[in-house]
Simulated scan of single mutants.
Amino acid sequence: MAELKKNILATLAYFDVFNYPLTREEICLFLPAKYEPMLFDVAMACLVSCRLIYRFDKFYTLKNDPYLIQRRNDGNQKAFEMIKVARKVGDILIRFPYVRGIAISGSLSKNYADEGSDIDLFIITAANRLWIARTLMHCFKKLTFLVNREHYFCMNYYIDEQQLEIAEKNIYTATEVVTLIPIQGDTTFADFFTANAWTRNYLPNHIMRVSTAKSLNKIVLKGMTEWLFNNRFGDVLDDRLMKITAGRWNQKTQQKRLNNHGILLAMAVDKHYAKPDPENFQYKLISRYETKVAQLLVENHHSVAN
């Protein structure tokens, strides 16, 4: 029972970093181990009675603050509308050469959005053509600035089919992987989730969503463009575009340029991935989470142990 209580607190602590209350079912999904439902309900009742966690309607939180529930409900409604837009965006972006899969990521994939939220997208490309695909997509994104829709096309994280496994393995990356909402490329994401089965070590109760993605259709112009670059010239061009992009991003980082959210612009670059790297964000978040869990367990040792 003590271990279960600790795990419930740890699960709520992770989402407390984002001020996001959870339902009973969501707590079960994000627990790091499997438990009998009856035992889980007893542990939850004990934690509520001891005021280690607080219940407001169907939501649970570490803070005795009902505003968090209103914030979540508003965010869920906003996310519902934005996800519909994101699916339309996916219908456009899947037409670009070498794009094999598109998923919603970030806070929107956790069903939350506010007035400042973007549509963050996770992109899978064909092997060894990530940089051709990314360059074409980002040229298109520049055009969206003309109609003030750039926040609909935040293509933040790219990987290719040659390296589907996420290298960093921790609670943050596991949560990000299992909460992705695939919207294009069902078989591609089936392969992706298979390659990242390690997430079950962190979140054994979570079932990853492949059925939310559309199947890939043949697009004549896309196929013709890929045929033009499926050769040695395409290899050289992809390498060259990677080096150019890496150089530009290094310059942005050295100049300490900030994005619209005031975060330092930085990107990790490789032949098979392109991903944001804002000031050791993962390390800082995990450190905050672990500190919060440690404080909870120290301050409430007696209640948790019984």
Rank of each mutant, 00 (worst) to 15 (best):
N76Q: 13
G116Q: 09
D65T: 09
R100H: 10
S105A: 15
M137A: 15
I124Y: 05
I92H: 08
L62S: 07
A127K: 11
K88A: 14
S107F: 00
L93P: 08
M82W: 07
I132S: 07
N128F: 12
D74S: 11
V89P: 08
R100W: 04
R129H: 12
R87I: 14
R71V: 00
K63A: 15
Y60N: 01
G75V: 03
L108D: 03
G106S: 01
R134A: 09
E81I: 07
L143V: 12
R87F: 14
W131G: 14
G75R: 01
G75K: 03
T125C: 15
C139T: 11
T144P: 14
M82C: 01
A127L: 02
K84Y: 04
I104K: 06
R129M: 01
A79C: 04
L108C: 12
N64Y: 02
D74H: 08
I92R: 09
L108I: 06
W131E: 00
K58D: 14
Y98I: 10
L143K: 04
N128V: 07
D118E: 10
V85Q: 12
Y98N: 09
K88P: 09
G90A: 13
Y67L: 14
A126N: 05
D91F: 04
M82D: 05
Q77D: 14
I123V: 14
G116A: 12
S107K: 00
W131C: 13
C139L: 13
G106R: 03
H138F: 07
E81C: 02
P66G: 02
K88G: 14
Q70D: 15
N73A: 11
L93A: 00
Y60D: 02
A126L: 03
K63V: 12
A133E: 01
G106Y: 06
V99P: 04
I123C: 10
L136Y: 12
I119G: 06
D57K: 15
L62Y: 07
I102K: 04
N128P: 11
K78D: 15
L93G: 10
P97R: 06
F59T: 00
L130V: 11
A103E: 11
R134P: 08
D120M: 03
R87V: 08
D120R: 05
L108S: 04
A126K: 15
G101L: 05
R129A: 01
I104D: 01
K141V: 13
A133H: 06
I124W: 09
N73G: 07
P66C: 06
S105R: 08
Y60G: 03
F122G: 03
D118P: 12
A79D: 05
N64S: 09
S109M: 06
I132D: 05
I124H: 06
K110Q: 02
L68I: 07
G116C: 00
F122M: 04
I119D: 02
K142P: 01
W131I: 00
I94R: 15
I119M: 07
I83M: 13
Y112Q: 04
R129L: 12
T61I: 03
D114M: 10
N64H: 11
